[in-house]
């Protein structure tokens, strides 16, 4: 029997961190694991690093009784303790982000709100770019950050037209970066960079514009913060605790609709309208998470 140690989402799929399996070689043990834990596990296995008694292993390596194989997916951070640390720092970051949005929304005038958004989008872009770098890509991080700043200024000055302009700018800045710096000329680096820049700039511009137009009278931003915050909290809980009938994605979607409706009731807004907004948010949250997962790990 060989001990297989599992980390991150492979551990979640298998429902255990440690399993004993039969096999003469690394490949045989892994195929026994595939047979036991199914297709989702098998696809996760493709991008995972395999360690045999603390050394990198290849499929043909022979294994014997009492050996230990560790399967470490790229997102786990390398070991059990690291994975645990990353989970906590992600929670803290999410909470800080939420408080930042609430605080800057309460502050009068658009300046604090804009500054908070830029900070949040910058942190997110740098984080997702770092994950791409982990996978050997070279995202145009500085170009993305430049695009975010340009988006804030252009949306503040020109409103809706500025938001449209900032989308054009975010594509142009990232592409132009490749003209100046030769190592950013690979399509596999430019494409995700443009995508990150588009999401970050339109996110910044869109929330700025919504606050300018719909706050403080119509509470669209407060309801956004409530719905998305609730959805993130529910998703964070469901990622850690397995609930019957509710996976993280449907939990996120339900929480977004619920948050939106509760927000509309609290601030006495049009409930029917905000049910639709909640449904839209639910869809965007689920799609966005899948998109993020593609960018971070190359898989949905």
């Amino acid at each position: 029997m060989v001990t297989l140690r599992l980390f991150a989402h492979l551990r979640e799929i298998a429902g255990t961190a440690r399993v004993e399996l039969e096999g003469e070689t690394v490949a045989e043990v892994l195929s026994a694991a595939r047979a036991r834990f199914g297709d989702e596990f098998a696809s996760g296995l493709q991008s995972a690093a395999i360690w045999h008694n603390g050394e990198t292993a290849s499929p043909a390596d022979a294994v014997k009784e009492g050996d230990e194989l560790a399967i470490i997916p790229p997102v786990s951070g390398g070991s059990g303790t690291m994975a645990q640390g990353m989970v906590d720092s992600a929670l803290v970051a999410g909470l800080v982000g939420l408080l930042l949005l609430i605080g800057t929304n309460l502050a009068p005038g658009p300046a604090w709100w804009a500054a908070g958004l830029v900070l949040l989008m910058a942190v997110w872009s740098v984080d997702i770019a770092a994950r791409l770098e982990d996978r050997g890509r070279e995202p145009v991080t500085l170009g993305i950050l430049t695009a975010i700043v340009v988006a804030v200024i252009s949306t503040h000055v020109y409103g809706g037209v500025g938001l449209g302009f900032s989308l054009y700018i975010s594509v142009a800045v990232v592409l132009a970066w490749g003209v100046v710096v030769s190592r950013y000329r690979q399509l596999t680096d430019v494409a995700p960079s443009v995508l990150i820049a588009l999401v970050a700039t339109s996110g910044t511009g869109s929330l700025m514009l919504t606050r300018t137009i719909y706050e403080p009278d119509q509470h669209a931003i407060s309801i956004f913060i409530l719905a998305v915050g609730l959805a993130a909290v529910v998703a964070a809980i469901l990622d850690r605790v397995r609930a019957p009938l509710l996976d993280p994605y449907s939990g996120t979607a339900l929480a977004a609709v619920l948050g939106s409706v509760v927000g509309a009731l609290i601030w006495e807004e049009d409930v029917v309208g905000f049910v639709l907004v909640g449904l839209g948010l639910a869809l965007f949250l689920v799609v966005g998470r899948s998109l993020g997962s593609i960018l971070r790990t190359g898989r949905v």
């Binding site: 929330l207 119509q218 669209a220 998305v228």
Partner: peptide, 22 residues
């Protein structure tokens, strides 16, 4: 920060969504 991905995407499309509905 995977949880933020969905939130960022939702943020990006929030203004178009709200302005279409209201």
């Amino acid at each position: 920060l995977g949880l933020l991905d969905g939130a960022m995407f939702a943020a990006a499309l929030y203004y178009p969504l709200v302005s279409v509905i209201f």
